[in-house]
Design a protein around this nucleic acid. Sequence first.
DNA 1: CTTAGGATCGCCT
DNA 2: GGCGATCCTAAGC
Length: 193
Amino acid sequence: MSLDLSTTFAAIDFSAPSDEVARRLIGVTVLVGGVGGRIVETEAYDASDAASHSFKGPTPRNFAMFGPPGRSYVYRSYGMHWCLNFVCREPDHGAGVLIRAIEPTAGIELMRERRGLDALKLLCSGPGRLCQALGVSAALNNWPLDRAPFELIAREEEVEVVSGARIGISKAVAMPWRFGWAGSAFLSKPFRG
DNA sequence: CTTAGGATCGCCT
DNA sequence: GGCGATCCTAAGC
């Protein structure tokens, strides 16, 4: 009897530029303690990018962005929400991908309890919402993505990816570094154009 | 569908 | 003191 690890091995090269990683993460399943679903929306950030937390160099908050690729960067947004990023490119660079929305597939009842909501569409459709649903907080900052409680599962089919302007930023607004699963009902906002 | 205000805190000027 | 990689509720088209 041998274990078949092929379905749980995430064939994701986090050393690639963040926009490439952001595009390839669409359709990948992310689980935290067995709770999660398929990524349907991401945004890329880079140290050369004025909208990025890493633009002005390391701080106590963003140090994980300057660590090795393939780890998490979890930060507090607006003083009250958590947001989850995957660090990419190379060590000390300051590149990452914000996970903006997930289609819930696993642990849905636990997500409903954590969110205090029933509506499936509202459980993980937003970076703060999905962190609450998956139980992501500061304890999981700078955490290797190939180690429990994280689990990444590669997509089994090609998906149609759309791109557009990022959300909630005021600098580098025109860069089309937001990526989404075309037609998904679980996006935090529709893609226009 | 869109817009507006409040909650709340790390980091910058 | 000001500004966010946000979310919720309420109100208007």
